[in-house]
């Protein structure tokens, strides 16, 4: 990515990552040559449709892949407090990885109903994480737990800390999850569709919380979403994924205002946008996402693409159109001509 910004800010840098799945005696190239960097205090939104590999990318960074998946190639370099660390070289369940997970890199998941253990109190579960990752005394841990819950906008945190997950509503559970994730003051927060299971008014609350965190702690955020609206509201940088590859990446302004990849452009044209009224035109993308076991040759989007030509039978390389804006398309000049 761009060299203009200082390298010191980079929290995690992913280079040529390939993660394949081996279910059913087939090999699915879920993530196939993906590179990006996340800087502290910035939000990278990874956006794409189901099955595009966005969640697998996140799980690769956390080394939380299922047993039948493997990182094949590429590097994931995490700039930990103690120096740069190659996450892809660490043992999945080794001590080093466990120290990072939940400590310097934290993750929140889509379904807050499933990510808390129903038999322990919420406070206990947050304290558990603190106990593992810090050397605080138990009284200090409890105080910190209450403080975190309060910061997340949970009313009466002194009382709530001793309640069980079922006594929390969906939105409060997700906030408790963020509290747990943020308790150790991570350098990177990975949020995998954190609000998809929640209502819009609750989603708004969660977003406020996340923005506050970013501003106060300089946390780097990797936000995985399928919603272009969320991208527009929260992202500093965007990576658009399709069938395991980043087809377009750049700052939110670049990608949303001058999309260079036909997929990004078509995606933006296919969603109704609030405020554009009854007569806005939306244009569906024809066809459907290919079967990952029966992929098209060359550019994966070609069969659905209006710009597709002969060249597209070969997968294009990533090309930089500005310091930060990159695209993987032969025809990007036609999609958005240079000014």
């Amino acid at each position: 990515m761009g060299t203009a910004q200082s390298e010191a800010d980079v929290v995690v840098s992913v280079e040529g990552l390939r993660t394949y799945f081996y279910n059913d005696n087939r090999c699915n190239k879920a993530v196939d040559d993906v590179s990006f960097e996340i800087r502290s205090g910035k939000t990278l939104c990874v956006v794409g449709e189901s099955g595009c590999g966005k969640s697998v990318t996140a799980s690769s960074i956390m080394q939380l892949l299922p047993r039948l998946a493997r990182i094949e190639e590429g590097s994931i370099t995490f700039n930990a407090q103690s120096g740069a660390l190659r996450i892809d070289k660490l043992d999945r369940n080794g001590r080093a990885m466990r120290n990072i997970r939940g400590g310097e890199i934290a993750m929140i998941f889509q379904d807050p109903m499933k990510s808390l253990n129903p038999v322990y109190t919420v406070g206990f579960q947050i304290a558990e994480n603190l106990k593992y990752h810090t050397r605080l005394a138990s009284r200090a841990i409890r105080e910190l737990t209450i403080e975190m819950l309060g910061k997340m906008g949970i009313p009466l945190p002194e009382k709530r800390v001793d309640q069980y997950p079922h006594e929390f509503s969906g939105g409060m559970r997700q906030r408790a999850m963020i509290a747990m994730a943020m308790a150790c003051n991570p350098r990177l927060l990975i949020a995998d569709e954190p609000t998809t299971a929640l209502d819009v008014t609750i989603q708004a609350q969660i977003f406020e919380t996340m923005l506050k965190l970013k501003a106060e702690h300089g946390t780097a955020i990797m936000l995985i979403t399928h919603d272009m609206g969320v991208v527009a509201e929260l992202a500093d940088e965007v990576a658009v994924m399709y069938m395991g590859k980043i087809v377009e990446g750049g700052t939110v302004e670049e990608v949303l205002r001058t999309p260079r990849h036909p997929y990004t452009k078509a995606l933006l044209a296919s969603i109704p946008v609030l405020g554009r009224g009854r007569n806005q035109q939306i244009e569906p993308i024809r066809g459907s996402t290919p079967d990952p076991y029966d992929r098209p040759v060359g550019c994966q989007f070609a069969p659905r693409c209006d710009y597709a030509g002969e060249k597209c039978a070969v997968m294009p390389d990533e090309e930089y159109v500005s310091f930060t804006h990159r695209v993987r398309c032969w025809k990007h000049q036609e999609v958005a001509p240079d000014e």
Partner: peptide, 8 residues
């Protein structure tokens, strides 16, 4: 901190 798993 190089606790890289051995390649096996």
């Amino acid at each position: 901190m190089n606790q890289h798993a051995p390649v096996r």
